[in-house]
Each structure stands twice: as structure tokens, then as C-alpha cells.
């Protein structure tokens, strides 16, 4: 197993209204090259802070203690080239006044040193890979002309355009409806497998995480409360909070809740 990424004793503190809040507390986690790891937790758990810290995207005002090492690399990874990042809201991550083809081509141009026509050709191939209908038309489309799911496909195409080793998806399917969410999750799984990428899948949804990831790390209030293989975390959770999260999941076989009244008179 080759370690791609090694986080050691990472503490991240945000300064807000004069007070300091520890968003992550003494986190240590190794991620192997080519593995799929889910980072799960509820709001305030620190899961997104970890994703941003790994991608080097934390705000200047935050205080970072501890280490994030990339064994086997002699320089820090470059965001967009070595790390692809897909955010929850594609409307916020895409430029509203730039054609989507250019947004993808720009990544290839900047990080792969391709000329513009080669970069556009690459963008078209990527739009095919993320299965946008009619890639030639999509190249010239603007974000507002696309649906939420299509925009997220474009954001994924831009994220993988430079061939990153690590893809971070931070609640990338959470704003989408169930059917589109499943399509995007399947697309991420396929692209990660085809390109041999490592996946960090940040989500509040333990069921979705379990479908995608080989390992699950559970975060709460800035602490890593449990990490293990998906089967171990789901079937034999060691931590009480992990058990509570699993019990709170409402699947298709959930109902009716014990306190639901019967059929109304």
C-alpha cells in the first residue's frame, strides 16, 4: 500500500467574532493511493474543514497546527492539478458568465500546458466522459442553461481535467434530487476507477457513503470518533455516536416510525 496522504495531529482553529473555535482537533488519518474514503458527520463535525485543509483551501484567518504530508512527492500538491475538488453547489463553483467549455479548457491549458485548441478538444472529451448530452452544444453553453445535475457534471469535468491523483467531493450530491444524486455518485465511482484516482467523499449521508467508499471516517464536533472499513463501521460500530447515526438513518425499510398513528379514522 502506497500512502498518498498522511494527516498528523491536525488542528484547525477558526477565528470568528473575536473568539476562537476549533473546527478540527488533533486529527490523524492516512489515505492510501487509489482508495475511496468517506468522511462523514453532521453540521459542525469538521468534515468540510478537513477537505479544505487537505486541498489547501482554508481561509487565511484560520490557524493550522499539525502536518499534512504527501509521501512520495517532493513538493506540495497544486490545487486543480494534483487535487480536484467538487463542491456542493455547482452554481457557486462555476463562472456564470463563461461558457462551460472554456472553464474546463482553462484547467487543461493552465495545468497541462495544452494549447487552446487541444484544451478545447480535451474539454469536449471530458464532457463526453461525464455524459453530458450533446457535448458540442454543451461546450458553448453557460451554467444557467444547464440543470443542477448537468452543472455538477461540468464541475466534475473541470475537477478531473488536469488528471489529479486525488478527487475530493464535498457534499457533491447533497443538493440534487434522489435520482440525479445516484447518477452523479455512479459517475464519480466510474471516473475514479477509470483514472485510478483516490477519492475523498465528504457526506452527511452514511448510506450513500457506504455505497461508495471502502473506508469510512466518522467525525463529530471536530473529533475523528471512528475510522474503519465500510463493513466494520456499518456492521460493528465501536463508537456510540456512529451507532446513533446508523440508527437515525431512514432507509426504504424504515417505516412506519413506532409512534406513528395507524390509518386515520
Amino acid at each position: 500500500m502506497t500512502v498518498l496522504l498522511s494527516v498528523r495531529d491536525l488542528t484547525v482553529t477558526y477565528r470568528r467574532d473575536g473568539s476562537e473555535v476549533a473546527a478540527l482537533k488533533h486529527i490523524s488519518i492516512d489515505v492510501a493511493a487509489g482508495e475511496r474514503v468517506a468522511i462523514i458527520g453532521e453540521s459542525g463535525s469538521g468534515k468540510s474543514t478537513l477537505a479544505l485543509a487537505i486541498a489547501g483551501l482554508l481561509p487565511q484567518s484560520s490557524r493550522i497546527e499539525g502536518r499534512i504530508d504527501w509521501p512520495g512527492r517532493n513538493h506540495a500538491p497544486i490545487g486543480g492539478r494534483d487535487i480536484g475538488f467538487v463542491f456542493q453547489d455547482p452554481s457557486a463553483s462555476l463562472d456564470p458568465v463563461m461558457a462551460v467549455g472554456k472553464q474546463i479548457a482553462e484547467v487543461a491549458h493552465t495545468h497541462l500546458g495544452l494549447g487552446w485548441s487541444a484544451a478545447y478538444a480535451k474539454a469536449k472529451t471530458l464532457l463526453e466522459r461525464v455524459r453530458l448530452p450533446d457535448p458540442d452544444v454543451a461546450l458553448r453553453a453557460y451554467p444557467h442553461q444547464l440543470s443542477g445535475g448537468q452543472k455538477q457534471r461540468v464541475a466534475i469535468a473541470a475537477a478531473i481535467a488536469a488528471g489529479p491523483k486525488l478527487l475530493i467531493a464535498d457534499e457533491a450530491t447533497s443538493a440534487l434530487d434522489t435520482i440525479v444524486q445516484a447518477e452523479i455518485a455512479a459517475l464519480i465511482r466510474q471516473l475514479v476507477a477509470e483514472d485510478g484516482m483516490t477519492l475523498l467523499f465528504v457526506s452527511h449521508d452514511i448510506a450513500l457513503a457506504a455505497e461508495l467508499a471502502e473506508r469510512i471516517a466518522v467525525f463529530r464536533h471536530g473529533d475523528l470518533v471512528e475510522i474503519g472499513t465500510t463493513a466494520q463501521v456499518v456492521n460493528t460500530p465501536r463508537n456510540a455516536y456512529t451507532r446513533a447515526l446508523l440508527d437515525a438513518h431512514l432507509g426504504l425499510d424504515a417505516g412506519p416510525m413506532p409512534w406513528r398513528t395507524g390509518t386515520p379514522a
Binding site: 434522489t178 445516484a182 447518477e183 448510506a207 432507509g251
Partner: peptide
């Protein structure tokens, strides 16, 4: 059928 198929399934075997 599509909605049911798309809903993530959490299979807990050892409960």
C-alpha cells in the same frame, strides 16, 4: 421504480 432504485441502501448484516 427509478426513485426506489436510486435511494441509497444501508445494509447492516450483523445487527
Amino acid at each position: 421504480k427509478a426513485l426506489v432504485a436510486a435511494t441509497p441502501k444501508l445494509t447492516r448484516t450483523s445487527m
